[in-house]
């Protein structure tokens, strides 16, 4: 234990000296802040409209419903519509409105605007239907939830990536050979080396989740799930770190790892539930399910323990299968 702590202490010391620990903490926080800004923008209207600034009521009427940009001439308005994003032009005509489209907008968006213009043309007239909007009081944006989940999973993977790069650098500077003649065993070395890349993403992810505004979740369940998720990143990081002698091949291998990580997370998000069995092999899938339930406030200890046990079982199986290779690589 003492020797493990010495290795951790040495890693923290060198990590603080070259700001590694600071970066590990800062990256998820910075990304959470950007994500928050991004999600904030997404709550605005999904429709953007360019109109002439000629004092007509259309500017204020449309501003209530859409994002409006004003232009002094028709040429400037047309130039705006022709730019790469989806912005429609609206010009008031004696008969009603002219809708100016580029022609490559997402299908269906022009129909929404036509309906809006039709509604504005009706003005105060009594409509043949009454329409109301209400909600079921669920304030969490799906974008914030999914963005937060992706951020958590990528932060833990990043922890593994840093372990592998750290190991490769140690190998290149021959400090691993020095470790072989030190009193620390290989197991102590592995734990000691892994703790920094293991613990800092946990702290970073927790802070990121708070920054994103998640409050009503069970922190104990969150930490248990995060620890189990970080364990697979740790094993992957070690495996790649010890089997590669230079950072380029390490990054190449890690890039290969990102494919199943992305596939399992995106699959869990978008695949119909009857297809989820194809993702059962992936610990990131189980981690995603746990985190999703926790942030939604719907998790139970039973679910968390089952999912975390599956993650740890897969991690243990991978580690057991590859242990000889890891130990050989540490020589």
């Amino acid at each position: 234990m003492k020797r493990i702590l010495v290795i951790v202490k040495r890693d923290i010391k060198s990590g603080l000296r070259d700001f590694l620990v600071v970066y590990l903490m800062l990256a998820p926080i910075l990304l959470a802040l950007i994500l928050r800004l991004f999600v904030g923008g997404m709550t605005a209207s999904p429709l953007r409209v360019a109109v002439l600034d000629d004092g007509s009521a259309i500017v204020s009427e449309l501003s209530r419903l859409t994002h409006v940009e004003t232009f002094s001439t028709r040429e400037a308005l047309v130039e705006r519509v022709m730019r790469i994003d989806d912005v429609f032009g609206v010009v008031v005509t004696p008969e009603g409105h002219e809708l100016i489209a580029h022609g490559n907008e997402m299908p269906g968006t022009d129909i929404v605007l036509r309906n809006v213009l039709r509604r504005l043309q009706a003005g105060e007239a009594v409509l043949p239907v009454s329409v109301g909007v209400r909600d079921i009081n669920y304030g969490m944006s799906p974008l914030k939830l999914q963005g937060g989940l992706l951020l958590i999973i990528f932060t833990t993977v990043l922890g593994g990536m840093l372990i592998l790069l750290n190991l490769i650098e140690e190998k290149m500077s021959n400090t691993i050979s020095a470790m072989n003649v030190s009193p620390a065993s290989k197991g102590e070395f592995i734990i000691g080396k892994g703790l920094l890349g293991f613990a800092t993403p946990i702290v970073g992810s927790t802070m990121a989740v708070y920054i994103l505004g998640f409050r009503d979740f069970d922190i104990a369940m969150f930490v248990v799930s995060l620890v189990s998720l970080a364990s697979i990143s740790l094993v992957v990081g070690f495996l790649i770190g010890v089997t590669n002698d230079e950072p380029i091949s390490g990054i190449a291998a890690m890039k290969g790892v990102y494919v199943p990580v992305l596939a399992s997370v995106l699959g869990a998000m978008f695949l119909a539930e009857r297809w989820h069995f194809v993702l059962y092999w992936s610990p990131f899938y189980w981690g995603y399910l746990s985190m999703n339930a926790i942030l939604l406030g719907e998790a139970t200890w039973r679910t968390i323990i089952v999912n975390s046990s599956i993650i740890l079982a897969i991690t243990a199986a991978v580690f057991a299968a590859l242990r000889p290779r890891i130990v050989r690589g540490l020589r």
Binding site: A44, V116, L120, P128, V129, V131, Y138, S141, P142
Partner: peptide, 29 residues
Amino acid sequence: WLRLEVVLQGHESEQTRALLQATVEGAML
């Protein structure tokens, strides 16, 4: 007349709700 009540989850902004209401009313017109 018919009465339509759109039920949302609750995270949608006021602007999005107003847009949705205007769109449905416009479609019915």
